[in-house]
Design a protein around this nucleic acid. Sequence first.
DNA 1: GTCTATAACGGGATAGAC
DNA 2: GTCTATCCCGTTATAGAC
Lengths: 186, 186
Amino acid sequence: MPTSSTSRGEATARIFTVFRDRGFEGATLAELARATGLGKSSLYHYFPNGKDDMVLAVFDLLDQWLEENMVKPLQSPGTPAQRLRTILRALDELYDGGRNACVLGVLVVGGARERFQARLKASFKTWIGAMRDLAVEAGVARREAQHRAENVVIRIQGALILAGGLGDPEPFRRELRQVEQHLLAG
Amino acid sequence: MPTSSTSRGEATARIFTVFRDRGFEGATLAELARATGLGKSSLYHYFPNGKDDMVLAVFDLLDQWLEENMVKPLQSPGTPAQRLRTILRALDELYDGGRNACVLGVLVVGGARERFQARLKASFKTWIGAMRDLAVEAGVARREAQHRAENVVIRIQGALILAGGLGDPEPFRRELRQVEQHLLAG
DNA sequence: GTCTATAACGGGATAGAC
DNA sequence: GTCTATCCCGTTATAGAC
């Protein structure tokens, strides 16, 4: 169906990286156009409300990613520990071993938060919910599982911040290893 | 010596909150002027290089805060646990129980990181170093103390992100309580 | 759907009087 | 040190041809 050289979906994937690296107010139309290979007019063709629409598309893409890489592994075969490993590997890849920021964390700061609070909350809840369900399945009491799941997300977000601030991805890598031990521990 | 109604120091304190709440690119001169009660020209009188100079002043202020509230308590009387409590109380106040963002975390995202990487790294290292020294004094081996200190900073940063994303400060409050148990544990 | 051109606006920054 | 006025540029957004 798509007739253009760069589909809306392909454009969204590029736009994702621009918001992740530059933040909402730091992402200019010029850079978004360059990153997608589209002219400004074409961007407005796909995203009539400009950057706001682009961010919503990024949330849609992110929610697909969460569904595929966090939620779907809950129904896969294997032990909870094995599936957790799969999940953490996907996160490690998404964040490029601590060298990439998290677009959710980026959109929490500045004026973007107010605008997209509902989507931010929903995405975080999806993520936390998946981690919690895995812990519950491994025998952790539901309330404790919820807290551990939030703790996992907190530590990943914080590790990405520190890695960025130090200019060194190592804190992220160590934290990811510890998280693996922590979530399902007896 | 200051003859103006709003001194540079007072202005910096207000500017701090604007960058914290809006981010570097989100903070406009109009808002910075409004928040300080100064005209644009007065801002440029105090900060000849505009927003860049303002951020440097914010780093100076923050480093003073770290010295007073993280480093100085290391020489205070009392057990390490007591001094840790004092330190965590100061952080709880700084972040208003999880309702405020961390200006360090905010400046890590977007184009501000590259510009201020050195200052960011220095501030994080000061903070981590203080936490580490406290753990060492409590009998934790130095390498383990360093890791725990980084973990504390990671969890505080991450908790602020999640609190912002969910629009609920509770994750921060719980994390702060857990951090208190974790840093010095035998 | 994509292009060129441009409108309309807001941003950072400066000049010069006081 | 502060004010008013202004400049210049980048940014968002739109118009209209192809």
